[in-house]
Computed example of a mutant assay.
Amino acid sequence: MAEKSSIYIFIDDETTPIAALQSPVNFELDTTKLVDGKHCLKIVSRDPSGKEGVRLIPFEVRNGPAIDIEGIREEAVVDGIVPIMINAYGKGDAKNFLIVGSETPQSIPYWIFVLIIIFIAWGIYVEVVSSSVNLF
């Protein structure tokens, strides 16, 4: 029987693997044990001859309450008083979804107003052109 490759799974810069397995393998990563933020999954494979392969998979954990912000963006240049609306809500768990507070009210985008103005202007244009047409 042929020897199998060994797989070592690391999180971030840890020196101790969270799992040491033989390939092929199905693995479930429990992100509830990680703090929210950016992480890196490092998979090291060693074949029977001793050669190693490494694969890095960056990912972001967001298990905590979701935070929505309206009024400022990342890396924004601001001046004066900036009104900011912040909403935070929990997602519940796999069995229960928390509906209360999970929707963030948002202002109407400017392009909606532009579309309304264009539509009204088109309606006025059609009305003026159709009323100026002389019928025999």
Rank of each mutant, 00 (worst) to 15 (best):
I81S: 11
I81Q: 07
I81R: 10
V82H: 04
V82E: 03
V82K: 05
V82Y: 06
P83I: 06
P83S: 08
P83W: 06
P83T: 06
I84V: 13
I84R: 00
M85G: 03
M85D: 07
M85V: 03
M85I: 02
I86H: 04
I86M: 08
I86T: 05
N87F: 00
N87L: 00
N87R: 02
G90D: 11
G90P: 01
K91R: 02
K91M: 02
G92Q: 04
G92N: 02
G92E: 04
G92I: 09
G92L: 02
D93Q: 04
D93C: 08
D93R: 05
D93P: 07
A94N: 14
A94I: 15
K95I: 09
K95Y: 10
K95N: 12
N96F: 02
N96D: 08
N96H: 13
N96L: 07
N96R: 10
N96Y: 07
F97Y: 04
L98V: 15
L98H: 15
L98Y: 11
I99A: 14
I99P: 05
I99W: 09
I99D: 12
G101H: 09
G101F: 05
S102Y: 03
E103A: 15
E103N: 15
E103H: 14
T104M: 15
T104Y: 05
T104W: 09
T104N: 11
T104P: 02
T104V: 15
Q106I: 07
Q106T: 08
Q106F: 01
Q106C: 05
S107M: 11
S107H: 13
S107N: 13
S107E: 14
S107G: 14
S107D: 14
S107V: 10
I108V: 15
P109E: 06
P109C: 03
P109K: 04
P109T: 03
Y110K: 14
Y110S: 15
Y110F: 15
Y110W: 15
Y110H: 14
W111N: 13
W111H: 14
W111M: 09
I112V: 15
I112G: 04
I112C: 06
F113I: 10
F113E: 06
V114T: 09
V114P: 03
L115A: 04
L115M: 09
L115F: 11
L115K: 08
I116P: 00
I116A: 08
I116V: 14
I116N: 02
I117Q: 05
I117R: 03
I118C: 09
A121D: 01
A121R: 00
A121E: 00
G123A: 13
G123S: 12
I124K: 01
I124P: 00
I124Y: 01
Y125Q: 07
Y125E: 04
Y125V: 05
E127S: 13
E127M: 06
